[in-house]
Structures are given as structure tokens and as C-alpha cells.
């Protein structure tokens, strides 16, 4: 029988990552959608970088940056008591960076597809930017929000390279399901690897299926003008 701990750890990592990511990605996507600053193209490229960069590259630089042997890592460790290398919070941080495009891009395209007059109508009706966001913009990009949340969640579950680089492979702390599969294969334990793999496969497929079903429903019930 396989250990459940790696699966539980993967789930926890995904939940925490997705929650924090949503809080970061929403303002970021709004800024990218509505700002006229030139620098936003640079930021847009940076956000999408994890899509093309090998996970090991990202993991390597994160490892370098947060290693207590270096200045920045030493500062965090010494003054804030934060250690991001070989720890759960390190995994969360790396996952947030690595999944940024999976959350930001769907939200961004949702925002861009909204007619600008909706936002303008809201402000001529006397509503603040925050009210407009909460009551007009977000309800109208629900499919995009859902897509972003689910993609980041599922993608974090399946993450391997970054997690291995910055988390090491510490049982109970940083050994998530995808690493557990790798371990079982290394020790020629194919049956256990298969069980992990099957669970991950079924889980990911189910989530995506639900998202597409729900989104089809949304676009029928509530079509944009």
C-alpha cells in the first residue's frame, strides 16, 4: 500500500498556492489590463516566462536566491526567520512564481474581453473602482476566474522540476506526490508508482472536466454582449 502523505502534501501545497496566487494575480491582471504604462509589456513577459522556461532553471535561481549561504537568503533567515530552501514555504513560494501565468493569463484575457463601456457605465453611475471590480467586473469574468483557479491548482499538483530543486525530497515536508512517483520508480517499485500516477491522472482529468462543463454552462446562461 502506498503512503498517503505525499498526496496530502500535494493537495495542501496546491490549495495554499492557489489561494495566495489568486490574491496576487487579481490586482496584477487588473493592472496589466487597464494601465497605460509602457513597462507593463515587460511585466507581461515576465509573468509568462515560466511557460517557456525549464522548471529546473527557475528552481535553480530560486535555490540560489534563497540559500542561506547568500546575502538575501541570509537576511531572510536571520531577521525574519524565513527559510525558503528545503521547506514547505519554499515550495509554496516557488509554486506561486511558477504558476503565475496559469492564473494571470486567463484572468487577463477575461478582463480584456469585457466591453470597456461596462466599467465606464459603472463609474458614471457613481460607483468606485472597488465596487465596480466586485460587482461588475468579477461577476462577468467568472469563467476566467474559474479557469485560472483550476489550472493553477491542477498544475501545482503536477509540478516536478521546481519542487525537486528548491524543496529537495524530504518525506513529510517537501516530498509531494509527483516526487513520490519518481522515488518509487528509482527503487523499481512500479506498482506503487502506478497507484500514485493513476490517482493523479484521474484527479487532474476530473477537475478539468468539471471546469469545462461549468464554463459551458456559464456561457449559455450569461452571455456577454
Amino acid at each position: 500500500m502506498i503512503e498517503w502523505e505525499p498526496l496530502w502534501l500535494s493537495l495542501r501545497l496546491s490549495l495554499v498556492t492557489t489561494a495566495i496566487l489568486l490574491l496576487i494575480a487579481l490586482p496584477l491582471a487588473c493592472w496589466l489590463a487597464y494601465s497605460r504604462m509602457r513597462i507593463k509589456t515587460v511585466v507581461e513577459s515576465l509573468v509568462s516566462l515560466p511557460l517557456v522556461l525549464p522548471p529546473s532553471v527557475l528552481g535553480f535561481y530560486l535555490l540560489l536566491a534563497f540559500s542561506p549561504a547568500n546575502t538575501f537568503g541570509k537576511f531572510l533567515d536571520h531577521y525574519l526567520g524565513l527559510r525558503f530552501v528545503f521547506s514547505f514555504q519554499g515550495l509554496v513560494l516557488a509554486s506561486i512564481v511558477y504558476n503565475l501565468p496559469f492564473m494571470v493569463n486567463p484572468i487577463l484575457s477575461g478582463l480584456k474581453s469585457l466591453p470597456p463601456s461596462l466599467k465606464e457605465a459603472s463609474s458614471t453611475l457613481g460607483k468606485s473602482g472597488f465596487t465596480t471590480l466586485a460587482k461588475v467586473i468579477l461577476p462577468n469574468i467568472r469563467p476566467s476566474l474559474l479557469t485560472g483557479i483550476v489550472l493553477s491548482f491542477a498544475h501545482t499538483i503536477g509540478e516536478f522540476g521546481v519542487v525537486l530543486m528548491i524543496g529537495g525530497n524530504i518525506p513529510g515536508q517537501t516530498r509531494v506526490a509527483s516526487l513520490a512517483i519518481y522515488d518509487e520508480i528509482q527503487s523499481m517499485n512500479y506498482a506503487a508508482a502506478n497507484q500514485y500516477a493513476l490517482i493523479l491522472f484521474a484527479f487532474s482529468f476530473t477537475i478539468l472536466l468539471i471546469v469545462y462543463l461549468v464554463n459551458h454552462h456559464f456561457s449559455k446562461v450569461n452571455p456577454l454582449p
Binding site: P115, S117, L118, E120, A121, S122, T124, V136, N140, N222, P223, L224, P225
Partner: peptide, 10 residues
């Protein structure tokens, strides 16, 4: 303001 596309909240 009544917009040309009406801008009703869908």
C-alpha cells in the same frame, strides 16, 4: 450617460 451599446450589466 446612455451608451451607444447601452452597456447594460449582463
Amino acid at each position: 450617460l446612455v451608451f451607444q451599446d447601452f452597456a447594460l450589466f449582463p
